[in-house]
C-alpha cells in the first residue's frame, strides 16, 4: 500500500478569462495522467478551458500561525484604499 499514487492540486481557468483557480486535488501516477483525470473529475460540465496540475508536495504554504505577522500590518494602512480620500463633488469623477 506504500505505492500510493501521488497527490496533485488542480487549478482550472474558467470560461470567462479569469485566472486559474484551485478546484481540488486528485491522485495520479504522473503529470499527464493528472491532467487527464482532472478533466474527468473537475470539468464534466464545461467548467474550464485550461488545466494546471501541481504536485501537492511542491507547494509551499504560509503557516496558519503566521497569519498575524503576515496580514495584520495591512489593517492599519487604510489609506491604500481609494475611499480613504474625500474628493469634493465639484472635482468630478476620479
Amino acid at each position: 500500500m506504500s505505492n500510493e499514487w501521488p497527490l496533485w492540486e488542480v487549478f482550472i481557468r474558467g470560461q470567462h478569462g479569469l485566472s486559474h483557480r484551485h478546484v481540488g486535488s486528485l491522485h495520479a501516477p504522473d503529470a499527464e495522467m493528472a491532467v487527464n483525470n482532472a478533466r474527468d473529475v473537475y470539468t464534466r460540465r464545461n467548467e474550464g478551458v485550461s488545466i494546471w496540475v501541481v504536485p501537492a508536495n511542491e507547494i509551499t504554504a504560509s503557516a496558519p500561525g503566521e497569519k498575524g505577522p503576515l496580514f495584520e500590518p495591512a489593517n492599519s494602512k487604510v489609506y491604500r484604499h481609494p475611499t480613504f480620500f474625500n474628493i469634493p463633488k465639484e472635482v468630478g469623477q476620479m
Binding site: E4, L7, G24, S25, L26, H27, V41, R44
Partner: peptide, 19 residues
C-alpha cells in the same frame, strides 16, 4: 465517482491517506 473523489480529497486534508 466524482463526488466520491471530491470527498476523499477533503478527508485527506485531515491527515488520513486514500489507501
Amino acid at each position: 465517482a466524482g463526488h466520491g473523489l471530491y470527498l476523499y480529497c477533503a478527508a485527506e486534508t485531515l491527515g488520513i491517506s486514500r489507501d
